[in-house]
C-alpha cells in the first residue's frame, strides 16, 4: 500500500509526533555532528564556536601516538580472547538450557543471564579480586578478557538459544536413528545449523569487547586498551585527537549501520516475497 490517505483526525496527532521525532533525532545527532566538526578545527581545544581554520593535523598525529597504537593492539588481543572464551561457553550454556528438561533450568537461566543485568564495574571488580586472591594473577589483559567474557558469554548464549529454539529436533533424531553417534550428530547436524549464529555472535562479541569501558576499566589494572586510553585522556582535558578518533569511530559505525540496515531490509523483502 503506497501513499494511502490517512484517515481524518490522525493528521493532527501525526504532526505532533513527527515534530517530536525531529526534535529527538536532532538531540541524538547534533552533539555527534559537533564532535565531528571540532575534529577539523585547528583550535587546540575542541570547539566549533572558536573556529581557527580547517585542519587534518589531529588525524595526522594519530599514527604517531604510541599509546593509542598500543591500546588498539591490546583491544584486539582482548577481543580475540573474549571470542575464544565466550563463544564455547555461550554455546554450552544454550545447549544445556534448551536440551535439559528440568525445573532447575529457570534458576540456571537466571544465573547465566545475570551478568547482563550486573553493573559492569561489579564484574570487573569480582574478576580482579578472584584472580588475584585465588591464583595470584594480577589485573591485566588476561583479567580484562575474562571479565568481559563473563557477560559477553551471556549475550552469545541468548543468541544461540534463539537459534536452537528454531531447530527441528527431528533432524537430530533422524540422524541418531540412522546410526550416527551423538558426537557425529553434533558435528554434522547441530554445528552447521548454528554456523550463522557463530559468525554473528563472534561479531557482536568482538564489538562488545572493543567498546567496553566500565568492566575493562576495573579489570585491566595498569595496562590499557584503546577505549580506556581515550577515557583517561578525556579525564585530563579535552584534546582534538580524541575528536579525530571519534570521527573514525563514527565513520566506521555509519558504514556498518548502513550495511546492516540494507541487509536486513533485503532479508525482509525476500521473506515477504517468498
Amino acid at each position: 500500500m503506497t501513499a494511502a490517505t490517512p484517515s481524518t483526525g490522525r493528521d493532527w496527532s501525526d504532526t505532533v509526533l513527527n515534530a517530536y521525532l525531529a526534535v529527538f533525532y536532532a538531540y541524538l545527532f547534533l552533539p555527534l555532528l559537533l564532535m565531528v566538526a571540532a575534529a577539523f578545527n585547528a583550535s587546540p581545544t575542541p570547539s566549533v564556536t572558536d573556529w581557527q581554520g580547517f585542519t587534518l593535523d589531529w588525524f595526522r598525529r594519530l599514527p604517531q601516538d604510541q599509546r593509542f597504537i598500543q591500546g588498539l593492539w591490546h583491544s584486539l588481543i582482548i577481543a580475540a580472547g573474549v571470542i575464544v572464551i565466550a563463544l564455547p561457553l555461550g554455546l554450552a550454556g544454550a545447549l544445556v538450557l534448551t536440551r535439559l528438561q528440568s525445573r532447575a533450568t529457570t534458576s540456571l537461566y537466571t544465573i547465566l543471564v545475570s551478568p547482563i543485568l550486573t553493573p559492569g564495574i561489579v564484574l570487573g571488580v569480582t574478576t580482579m579480586i578472584f584472580w588475584r586472591d585465588t591464583f595470584g594473577v594480577e589485573a591485566g589483559l588476561f583479567t580484562a578478557a575474562v571479565a568481559q567474557a563473563s557477560f559477553i558469554a551471556s549475550y552469545c548464549m541468548l543468541m544461540f538459544m534463539a537459534r536452537l529454539q528454531r531447530q527441528d529436533r527431528a533432524l537430530e533424531e533422524a540422524a541418531l536413528d540412522l546410526g550416527a553417534s551423538p558426537v557425529l550428530v553434533f558435528r554434522r547436524i547441530t554445528l552447521p545449523f548454528l554456523m550463522p549464529t557463530m559468525i554473528t555472535a563472534s561479531f557482536i562479541a568482538f564489538l562488545q569487547s572493543i567498546e567496553n569501558y566500565n568492566t575493562t576499566f576495573f579489570a585491566i589494572g595498569s595496562s590499557w586498551t584503546l577505549v580506556t586510553e581515550i577515557g583517561s585522556r578525556m579525564r585530563f582535558g579535552l584534546s582534538p585527537t580524541v575528536n579525530a578518533i571519534g570521527v573514525l569511530f563514527v565513520a566506521l559505525t555509519v558504514i556498518a549501520a548502513v550495511v546492516w540496515v540494507a541487509t536486513r531490509r533485503r532479508e525482509l523483502a525476500r521473506r515477504a516475497a517468498g
Binding site: 541524538l28 545527532f29 552533539p31 555527534l32 567498546e211
Partner: peptide, 28 residues
C-alpha cells in the same frame, strides 16, 4: 532505524565526550 542504530553503536565514551564539549567552560 538507521537514525537510532548509529548513535547507539557509537562508543559510550564518545557520546559522553560530545556532550562534555558542549558543557565545557569554553564549550559550545
Amino acid at each position: 532505524m538507521l537514525g537510532l542504530v548509529i548513535p547507539y553503536a557509537i562508543n559510550e565514551l564518545l557520546r559522553i565526550f560530545s556532550w562534555v564539549m558542549i558543557l565545557e567552560k569554553q564549550g559550545i
